[in-house]
């Protein structure tokens, strides 16, 4: 058990192991996103009430899922980094933060654009929308904190703490539509209950969700590998590797 953790925590081991995995992740993500997009935009039926604006669901829901999952992943990485001092956890957290912020923005933007034809407003201060906006500020805070310290270790610790504290917001986002009256409707896509739409609408959504997660894994792998090289630049194995690449 300890051996595995140490291996996983070793940047060198991770760097070489992920090399083979990475192109597969990119390939699978690209294929799923491509097929899911064409399916969702062309072949999936329009909704009987919303018409074609329903197709926004195929980017809105996966982006909102990622926005929350990335933050949880960041908080877990922060915990691992703080408790076990495993540096690679912090490298991964650094690598994934911009993606999470981007996905939060995408979820907010696509939701606002969707709200205009469906609700009759692009924004309302209900619990779901507000807690999602707070998530965006938390992401910006984590990214800014990390960059604000001259010592990398201090920045990493501060960012980890904020991620761990800020993760409180995630259940609030998730359950806001059940706990309070909101303009936002409850979830249509869950893993635990029967989907609230027929298969020909649901399957492309599933593909997009899995594709977004694949994209998350692929991007995080690539960026973590860059981060490893950056931070381990002075080690013998990175120098040897650089000569090899030449």
């Amino acid at each position: 058990m300890w051996g595995l953790i140490h291996k996983l925590g070793s940047p060198k081991w991770f760097y070489y192991r992920s090399a083979a995995l990475q192109p597969w992740c990119w390939g699978v993500a690209a294929a799923l996103l491509l097929v899911g997009s064409v399916w969702g935009l062309v072949f999936a039926p329009a909704d009987y009430q919303q018409g074609n604006s329903f197709r926004i669901i195929y980017v809105h829901v996966p982006a909102a899922f990622l926005a929350q999952s990335v933050f949880v992943a960041m908080a877990v990485s922060g915990l691992v980094f703080m408790v076990w001092k495993i540096k690679i956890a912090d490298m991964a957290a650094t690598a994934m933060a911009p993606l999470g912020a981007a996905m939060t923005f995408v979820a907010l933007f696509s939701g606002a654009v969707w709200g205009v034809p469906t609700w009759g407003t692009w924004w309302i201060w209900d619990a779901r929308l507000t807690s999602m906006l707070i998530l965006l500020f938390l992401y910006i805070g984590v990214i800014a904190l990390r960059g604000a310290f001259s010592r990398r270790d201090s920045g990493a610790r501060a960012a980890s703490v904020l991620a761990m504290v800020g993760v409180i917001n995630i259940p609030i986002i998730k359950y806001s539509v059940d706990w309070w009256y909101t303009l936002h409707q409850p979830a249509s896509f869950t893993l635990t209950s029967r989907p609230a739409m027929p298969v020909e609408m649901w399957l492309p959504l599933l593909m997009m969700v899995v594709g977004f997660y694949g994209f998350f894994i692929a991007l995080t792998l690539t960026r973590t590998r860059s981060e490893i090289l950056r931070r381990e630049a002075n080690t013998r194995w990175v120098r040897a590797l650089l000569e090899e690449v030449n």
């Binding site: 039926p45 919303q50 609700w119 309302i124 409850p186 739409m197």
Partner: peptide, 14 residues
């Protein structure tokens, strides 16, 4: 403001 519910279906199903 219209409040939509979480159910979606194609016009034919409706």
């Amino acid at each position: 403001l219209a409040r939509h519910d979480e159910n979606y279906m194609p016009p034919e199903v409706a």
